[in-house]
Simulated scan of single mutants.
Amino acid sequence: MLCLTFRLLACAALVCATTLHASPLLRCELTYAGSTQTLEATPVDDPYPVASVDVGGRFYFKAVVVGRGAQPEYIKTYAYLDTRTQPVLVQQATYLPPFATAPGGQRLTGKQFVYAGPVERELQYECVLHGVQP
């Protein structure tokens, strides 16, 4: 019985240690025309191959977390309006460390409202950063 208890405690400690050293995760909630989708971004070394995602056929959104380890080097978000000829950048934001830690993740961007196009379409987004070490 003592051996089983020891094994359970060892497993619990391993799970806690793995959770504490998990890679950062950026989770963004994107809303357009009453429809919401979630985008998750994990750290990369090279930001250029990261693809943007289609948001309701009107916008594209891209979130990039650059750097390895528990503290990203930087985070960038991009919002593009989809036009007939090509996507047009309408908002870009850069976030630099130190990133504060909080239970449930750090609210990185706050609620953002992006307006673009001839009739001022509205894209809303908010990103939360999880798993960052101080």
Score class of each variant (00 low, 15 high):
residue 8 L to E: 15
residue 11 C to V: 14
residue 12 A to D: 13
residue 13 A to S: 15
residue 14 L to N: 07
residue 15 V to I: 15
residue 15 V to N: 05
residue 15 V to C: 10
residue 15 V to G: 09
residue 17 A to I: 06
residue 17 A to L: 14
residue 18 T to V: 09
residue 19 T to Y: 09
residue 24 P to D: 09
residue 24 P to I: 06
residue 25 L to N: 10
residue 26 L to G: 03
residue 27 R to F: 01
residue 30 L to Q: 04
residue 31 T to D: 10
residue 31 T to Q: 10
residue 32 Y to T: 10
residue 32 Y to L: 08
residue 34 G to M: 01
residue 34 G to V: 01
residue 37 Q to F: 00
residue 38 T to Y: 05
residue 39 L to E: 09
residue 39 L to D: 08
residue 40 E to W: 03
residue 40 E to F: 02
residue 44 V to L: 06
residue 45 D to G: 14
residue 47 P to K: 06
residue 48 Y to C: 13
residue 49 P to K: 11
residue 49 P to W: 01
residue 51 A to G: 06
residue 52 S to W: 05
residue 54 D to M: 08
residue 54 D to P: 01
residue 54 D to K: 00
residue 54 D to C: 04
residue 55 V to H: 01
residue 57 G to T: 04
residue 57 G to S: 06
residue 58 R to Y: 02
residue 58 R to M: 02
residue 58 R to P: 02
residue 60 Y to C: 06
residue 62 K to C: 06
residue 63 A to L: 07
residue 64 V to K: 07
residue 68 R to G: 12
residue 70 A to N: 03
residue 71 Q to T: 15
residue 72 P to K: 08
residue 73 E to M: 10
residue 73 E to I: 05
residue 74 Y to A: 12
residue 74 Y to M: 14
residue 74 Y to S: 13
residue 74 Y to Q: 14
residue 75 I to E: 01
residue 75 I to H: 03
residue 76 K to L: 03
residue 77 T to C: 02
residue 77 T to W: 01
residue 77 T to E: 08
residue 78 Y to D: 07
residue 80 Y to K: 05
residue 80 Y to H: 08
residue 81 L to V: 09
residue 81 L to Y: 09
residue 84 R to Y: 03
residue 84 R to N: 07
residue 85 T to D: 15
residue 85 T to Y: 05
residue 85 T to Q: 13
residue 86 Q to W: 11
residue 86 Q to P: 04
residue 89 L to H: 03
residue 89 L to D: 02
residue 89 L to P: 00
residue 98 P to M: 14
residue 98 P to H: 13
residue 99 F to R: 09
residue 100 A to R: 15
residue 101 T to S: 13
residue 103 P to K: 12
residue 104 G to N: 13
